[in-house]
């Protein structure tokens, strides 16, 4: 991923800044700039998510893509944020601990590195709530 492509999504990736439609109140993460319900009547504004959610489904990736190969097996999940939308993320926990329905919260972490001399991609992962 090029620097510009990564850089323009830094608020979203670092701080879970999504969007919200002020017309119907629906929240979007990943952010959308067009509300599928209200369409042209929709009014989209930025919204910072609380970072709290629940695991909807998960897997443990044993065969990782090259840029994630150094991570070893990692937990990949779809979580439902408390505000409503669902997103795909990594969960930092012992793979044996992950469970559907588990409560999680967001943390700032390194996601991947573009080779040895490429940029480091930071972003949001989730950890179990104690």
């Amino acid at each position: 991923m090029t620097v510009a492509r990564f850089w323009r999504k830094i608020p979203q990736r670092y701080n879970l800044i999504g969007t919200k439609c002020e017309t119907c109140g629906r929240h979007f993460f990943p952010p959308r700039t067009f509300c599928p319900d209200c369409r042209r009547e929709g009014k989209i504004v930025d919204h910072k998510f609380s970072g709290k959610g629940t695991i909807v489904t998960y897997t443990v990736i044993q065969t990782a893509p090259d840029q994630f190969a150094s991570h070893g097996p990692y937990v990949l999940a779809i979580i439902k944020l408390d505000e409503g939308p669902q997103m795909t993320t990594q969960i930092i926990c012992d793979p044996k601990e992950a469970k559907i329905g588990m409560k999680v919260k967001s943390v700032f972490r390194r996601i991947a590195t573009d080779g040895e001399s490429g940029i480091i991609h930071y972003g949001t992962k989730f950890v179990p709530v104690e």
Binding site: R13, T59, I61, A64, P65, L76, T88, I100, A112, K125
Partner: peptide, 25 residues
């Protein structure tokens, strides 16, 4: 979705695995 699935480490087997996990649950 490259920006919001691939970026965080999703692979195709990984996405279908999450379908399987949901289904089996």
């Amino acid at each position: 979705d490259r920006e919001w699935e691939g970026f965080v480490g999703a692979t195709f087997p990984g996405l279908y695995a999450m379908i399987a996990q949901d289904y089996m649950h």
